Amino acid sequence: MIESLISTNADYENAVQLHSIPGFKHDSAFIIISEIGIDMSQFSSSKRLCCWAGLTPGSYKYDGKKKSIRITHAGVYLKPALIQCAHAAVKFDKSPYYKKKYESLVKRRGKKRAIIAIARMILTAIYQMLSTGEEWAPSDLYKIDMPETLVQKQKDKAIKQAMKPLQKEGLLPLNEPLAP
């Protein structure tokens, strides 16, 4: 019945293309779209959507000290669906993007926090897909919600690090300025 309702509306049919994300199936896409909808203009950024879904840690202030506490209790239906998708994405071998991210996070944060981080990454990708209409591309995920000045700093740092071996070999002068 849900599929017949979605097939009559072209906007929803395009939104169900979320199953291109590793770990997603049509059922997961139905649940997530029914919770957040397809209009992302109600959320000003992906951070707002993640906060609404309950995937961000709360903060607690007392005596001038800030403490980060557990994730919030929001997103009663959305959060479990995203966590289930995150578990599936971590085990998906055909596209190991989330698997590699999970493995690097587990070392530092632990299994449960790493799964929450992967669920948040997936929700950020969903926000991007629904707001721009693009398909899921793991190489572009680091650019989401990143200020332009930070992107430029990272590019300059990468160029500087790439020039160091050339300068050691004598192929470039030592104090040559970066080319724009």
Rank of each mutant, 00 (worst) to 15 (best):
H73E: 10
T72W: 06
P96T: 04
S139P: 01
S41V: 09
K107C: 11
D11P: 08
S46M: 02
I2A: 10
Y142F: 02
I31Q: 13
I159T: 12
D27C: 05
I71S: 11
I33W: 11
T149S: 15
Q154F: 04
E134S: 14
N175H: 14
K47A: 12
P177R: 02
P22D: 01
K94M: 02
C51F: 04
M129E: 06
S20M: 09
I31C: 12
E169T: 05
K168N: 11
R109G: 08
E103H: 08
T149I: 14
P80L: 12
I31F: 10
Q167P: 13
K65I: 15
G133R: 00
D11V: 12
G37A: 07
K100N: 11
S131T: 11
L55N: 09
P147T: 07
L178M: 14
F43P: 02
L171G: 07
C85R: 01
E169L: 10
G64A: 02
L55F: 14
K157C: 09
A15H: 04
V151E: 04
S59D: 00
G37M: 06
R108Q: 11
L166A: 01
S131W: 01
A88Y: 01
T132A: 03
I36G: 04
I126E: 00
L105S: 03
I2F: 09
G58Q: 04
S95T: 05
K91N: 09
P180N: 12
L171A: 11
P138K: 03
K160F: 14
K61M: 12
A10G: 10
Y77D: 15
F92L: 03
H87Q: 07
H87V: 06
A15K: 01
D140V: 10
S28R: 02
G23P: 05
D63C: 15
I33C: 08
Y127L: 00
A162R: 15
K168Q: 13
S44P: 03
I36M: 07
Y142I: 05
Q152C: 04
K100A: 07
C50H: 09
V151R: 07
K79W: 13
L123N: 01
A114M: 05
